[in-house]
Design a protein around this nucleic acid. Structure first.
Lengths: 337, 337
DNA sequence: GTTCGATATCGAAAACTTTCGAAAATGAAT
DNA sequence: ATTCATTTTCGAAAGTTTTCGATATCGAAC
C-alpha cells in the first residue's frame, strides 16, 4: 500500500497525491477531496524510509544517554522523558544511543548513518571526544552542559557555579563556618565532568570570599555511597555543620546517615544544594535547594536543535538556566552561633 | 558520499561494494581489500534510509513507554536502558514512543510509518487497544506483561501471582494474622493494569487459604503517597502487622511513616513484596523481597522480538519469570506470637 | 479563433542501497 | 585451442517518496 496505489484509486498521478498531502503546491478542491477519501479508506501513511531518503531528513533526533551500566539518575530519566515529549510535540521521534566514551558502535551508527537530523548529547565532559566527532561530521547537535570553550556551540546548562555560590553565601549568612561539598563521583570528576568541576571551584572560592572553611568529598550516585560519605565527613571534619550537594542520588543515604548520627535538620545540621524539586520535597525535612529544571532544559534543547537544523549556518546560541533557590526547611542558623 | 563514490574510487561497480560490505556473495580478496581501504579512508557508512528502503527493514525497534506525565519509576527506567543496551548488542537502535491511551500521534507514526521492524510495549493493560492496533497492523511486537487472553501473543512477564502467593505464605508461617497489600495506584487498577489485579487476587486468595485477614490499599507511585497510605493503614486496621507491596516508588514514604510511627522493622512490622534488588537493598533494613529483573526481561523481550521478526509465522512464545525471593531482614515473627 | 496567463496535473529524475540475473574472467581439463 | 565449470563482477531493476520542469486545461481577452 504505497502512494502509487492511492494515486491509482484516486485516478491521479503520484505527484498529485504527494502535493495534496504536503500542500507544497495547490491541488483543486475536488481532487484533494477524492484523494483524502481514498487515503482515509485505506489508512495510508507514507513510508518513513522512502520519505527520509527523498526529503533528505528523517524527522528524528538522536539522544545520547550515559550507558546503562552507569545507573541513570532520576533527573536524567526525567530529562529523557521530557525530550521525547518535546520532540513529539514537533512531530519528531527520538532514537536512543547509550554511549559513554570515545568509540562506540551505537553512537557511530547514529552519527554516520544519516538516520537522525540532529543530536542531543547528555552528560558531556569539559573535553568531550563526541563533540569533536559530531562537529567533524557536520551533524547539528545541542549539548546538555557546555564544554570548556563553548564559543562555537549550541548548549543548554544550569548555572551550577552561580547556584553553588548562592548556597554557600546563604550558609555563611546563617553563621556556618565549616561547610562541605558533597560532589558527584570520583570518576566523573576525574573524567572532567563540568558541573562537578564548576561546583567545586565555585564552592571553594565563595567559601574563601566569605571567610569560612570549605571541604569537598566525592560520592558515587547511590544511597549506600551517601551513607558512607556522610560518615566519612563526620569522622574527618566533626566541626562541619552544613553541606551543599549536587548529588541527588546519594540523598537517601545522607538522610539515613544523618538520622543514625542523631542529627536533626536543620537544628544540628544544614543541607542545601542543586536538587530537583521532586527530590527536595521528598526529603525530610524538605530541602532548601535550587531546582534542576529537566523539563525546561529538554524543551529548550529541542528548540535549539530545531533552529539549528532549520538554518545550519545560524550563529550558535545557548541557554544558561539559573533556577531560583526555593527556601524550604533544611537550613538554619549554626547551632550555638 | 555514497556507495557510488566508493565504487568509483575503488574502480568497481556499486553492487560489488555492496557485496563486499554485506558478505552476501563472495568478493575476491584483492578487490575487497581495495574497497575496504577506500571506505576506511572516506569513513563511509551506508545511508540508513536508503538501506531500509531497499532491504525492507530498519534494524530499529520501537519502545512504547508510559507518557512522561506519569512519572516513570526506577524499574521502568532501568528497563528502558536495558532494552537499548540489548538492542545495541544486536546492532539495532531503539525509537521511543510515549503513549498511554488509545489514540496517539507518536504511536501511530511508529505503527504505520514502517519505521521500525517491531515494537516492545511496556505497561500494558489487561485489555489494551494498542495490542489490537499492532495486531491489525501486522507489526511484530512483544508485550511486557500479558493481556487477559494471551494465547496468541508474545510476551515477557513476572509471575506476580506466584510471587505474592509466596510472600503471603511466608508471612502466615511467621504467625502474622492480619496483613495488607500496598498496591499501585487507583488509576492503574481501574484501567485494568494486570500486575495490580493479579497481585490483588493472589493476595486475597492466598490469605483466605492460610486463614488470615487480608486488606488491600492502592497507593500512587511516589513517596508522599506512601506516607499517607501507611498512616491510613494504621488508622483503619491497627491490628495489621505485615505488608506486602509491589509499589516500589512509594517505599521511601512507607519507610518514613514506619519511623514516625515508632515501628521497628521487623520487630514490630514485617514488610515484603516484589521490589527490585537495588531498592530492596537501599531500604533500612534491607527488604526480603522478590527481584524485578528488568535487565533479564529486556534481553528476553529483544530476543523474542528478533525471533518473531525473523519468522513472522512462528508460533508465539513467552517467558514468565519467577525470580527467587531473597531473604534479607525485613520479615520476622509477629510480635507476641 | 488565436493568444495569453493562470491553474492543475503529469512524467521523469533524484535520493541510495540491495538484489537478481547475466556476463565476463579465470583456470583446468581435454 | 576449445570446452566446461567456477569464480568474480557488472548492469539494471526494485523499493517509495519528493521535486522539478513541462504539459494540459480552462477562461478570458483581443
Amino acid at each position: 500500500m504505497n502512494i502509487g496505489e492511492i494515486a491509482k484509486r484516486a485516478g491521479v498521478s503520484r505527484s498529485t497525491v504527494s502535493y495534496a498531502l504536503s500542500g507544497k503546491r495547490p491541488v483543486s478542491a475536488a481532487t484533494a477531496q477524492r484523494i483524502n477519501d481514498v487515503i482515509a479508506e485505506l489508512g495510508y501513511r507514507p513510508n518513513a524510509s522512502a520519505r527520509a531518503l527523498a526529503e533528505g531528513r528523517t524527522r528524528t533526533f538522536g539522544l545520547v544517554i550515559p550507558p546503562a551500566s552507569t545507573r541513570l539518575t532520576d533527573v536524567q530519566l526525567a530529562f529523557v522523558a521530557s525530550v521525547v515529549e518535546a520532540a513529539a510535540a514537533h512531530d519528531h521521534d527520538v532514537l536512543l544511543s547509550p554511549s559513554g566514551g570515545d568509540h562506540d558502535r551505537s553512537f557511530e551508527r547514529i552519527v554516520t548513518g544519516r538516520r537522525v537530523d540532529g543530536v542531543i548529547l547528555m552528560e558531556i565532559l569539559l573535553q568531550d571526544p563526541r563533540v569533536e566527532r559530531l562537529t567533524s561530521a557536520g551533524l547539528p547537535f545541542v549539548t546538555i552542559g557546555h564544554v570548556e570553550h563553548p564559543a562555537a556551540s549550541w548548549w543548554v546548562d544550569v548555572d551550577y557555579s552561580g547556584l553553588i555560590t548562592h548556597c554557600v553565601r546563604h550558609l555563611a549568612d546563617l553563621g556556618h563556618s565549616d561547610v562541605v561539598l558533597i560532589n558527584r563521583s570520583d570518576e566523573l570528576v576525574a573524567a572532567g565532568y563540568g558541573p562537578a568541576l564548576r561546583a567545586t571551584t565555585a564552592f571553594t572560592e565563595t567559601a574563601q570570599e566569605c571567610g569560612i572553611n570549605a571541604h569537598t568529598v566525592c560520592c558515587a550516585d547511590e544511597p549506600a555511597a551517601g551513607v558512607a560519605c556522610f560518615e566519612d565527613i563526620r569522622t574527618r571534619w566533626p566541626e562541619v555543620t552544613a553541606a551543599v550537594t549536587i548529588n541527588e542520588a546519594a540523598l537517601p543515604g545522607v538522610q539515613r546517615a544523618l538520622h543514625s548520627a542523631g542529627l536533626d535538620v536543620p537544628r544540628d545540621f544544614s543541607l542545601t544544594g542543586v536538587i530537583a524539586d521532586r527530590l527536595a520535597e521528598d526529603f525530610h525535612p524538605p530541602l532548601t535547594a535550587a531546582d534542576v529544571p529537566a523539563g525546561d532544559m529538554a524543551r529548550l534543547a529541542v528548540d535549539l536543535l530545531l533552529e539549528q537544523i532549520g538554518d545550519p549556518s545560524a550563529t550558535p546560541r545557548h541557554s544558561m538556566l539559573a533556577p531560583a533557590i526555593t527556601l524550604r526547611s533544611s537550613t538554619g542558623a549554626r547551632r550555638g552561633a
